[in-house]
Structure formats: C-alpha cells, structure tokens
C-alpha cells in the first residue's frame, strides 16, 4: 500500500524576471513501512521536494496523494491537519522551541490535537523512555547536546504516530557518533514499522535506508548510482 503517490510534480520559483524550475515532472511512490532516502547535492531541489511532501509548500502542477488524501485539493485547514497527524518532521537544526523544556517540546503536536498537558504527557511517556529522554524532560534545549536535541526532535515527530517520518538531513548538524546513533535509531523505528523518508546529500547516510532515490537538477532517478 502506497503512503505517498506523487505524479508529475512541477515547482518553479520566480527570481526577479526569471523563473527557476526547481522540480521537473517528479513522480515518486513510497510504500507503507518503507525507509527511503532522497539523495542529492546542494541546490538539486531535494529540500523543495521535502517541503512539498511535508505540505509546507505547494506544487505548481501534478498530483500528490498522502495516505489517501489528495493534497493538491486540500485547503489550509486540511493541510494543518495533515501536518499534525500524518507527518512527523525531523529537521537538520532540530528546530526545538528554546523557551520550552524537553517535555513541552515533545508533547506540542498532541496539545495541538486538543489534548491536555497531562493526557499528552501520558501518551508520550513511552516514546520519551524509548529515546532515553526520561531524565531530561525538564531540561531546556540549550542544556542538551546536539544528539540529545535531535532525539527530542525525533520524539516530537514520533509522538503523534504519523503516517511518515520526514527527516531533512537529520545528521547534518551532529558529530559522527551522534549521527550514527540517530541513524541506528532510524533503523529501529523502521523495524517497528514506521515509514521514513530521509533527505540527505551524504551517500553514507543514504545507504542506511532500504531504498535510495537521487535528485539531480530537479529530476528524480531511482537508485543511488548516477
């Protein structure tokens, strides 16, 4: 069963008088439980693709079905719902809210679903323990290492049990060991049945995924070899 089905996606940006065609007829399918890496150099369009997959940006042309929802027809309210319930974002720079502690950052997607803090805390404890953050829940992000912050970001993405985990260069800001730990964690999450789409420019990182696609100048190719 496909979680993501994209057909002929095109996206351009206007740069003054010129138009920059960033995605060119991109088609992609991702099955439920798949661990996919989108590999590409800087400027290839992989971040734009991730933003469209994550419903943070809109395509100019094409069709996109995410977990049986036709995204191209979705209104803002539905997009908000998709971002909250179907996608778990993991960013390169973690993007934690600095004024909230670990627990508050992690439960935020659940609060947005209308849960109370106590309900959200209960619902997230399993994830927090699985990621080894139980001792850190009252710490602020600036009191944590990079690896720990990324684990908080992963916990925040996981806690709502989304249809896909969408990771943008998840190891890009981490040292080698922390990066390895995060990738090992991704492997475990995949084994647990989570669908993971990871975007990276690093072949070594991409090789941890079960399937790799390349993006070059806005065009998508199957396989890691050029």
């Amino acid at each position: 069963m496909n979680i993501i089905t994209m057909q002929n996606i095109n996206k351009s940006y206007r740069m003054g008088n010129h138009s920059l065609h960033v995605l060119k007829n991109v088609s992609l399918t991702v099955e439920k439980g798949e661990y996919l890496a989108i590999l590409g150099p800087s400027g290839s369009g992989k971040s734009t693709l991730m933003n469209i997959i994550g419903c943070m940006d809109v395509m100019d042309e094409g069709t996109y079905c995410l977990d049986e929802v036709a995204v191209e027809h979705a209104k803002e309210k539905e997009l908000v719902n998709i971002r909250n319930r179907k996608i778990g974002f993991i960013f390169q720079k973690y993007h934690l809210i600095p004024t909230y502690n670990v627990l508050q950052n992690i439960v935020m997607p659940l609060l947005m679903r209308g849960m109370s803090l106590n309900e959200a805390r209960e619902a997230s404890m399993e994830t927090i323990e699985m990621l080894g953050l139980a001792e850190r829940i009252n710490h602020k992000p600036n009191e944590l290492s990079g690896g720990q912050q990324q684990r908080v970001a992963i916990a925040r993405a996981l806690v709502g049990q989304p249809a896909i985990l969408l990771a943008d260069e998840p190891t890009g800001a981490l040292d080698r060991n922390s990066g390895k730990e995060v990738l090992k964690l991704f492997g475990r999450l995949h084994d647990m049945g989570n669908t993971i789409v990871m975007i990276t420019h690093d072949l070594d990182v991409a090789e941890h995924a079960k399937r790799v696609v390349r993006i070059v100048d806005g065009e998508l190719f199957e396989g890691k070899e050029a």
Partner: peptide
C-alpha cells in the same frame, strides 16, 4: 514556523 510545521493552525 516550527509550530506551523507540527500542525498549529493560523
């Protein structure tokens, strides 16, 4: 941006 990415409404 973070809040919007994780599903916070306007």
């Amino acid at each position: 941006g973070i809040l919007k990415a994780i599903g916070c409404s306007q």
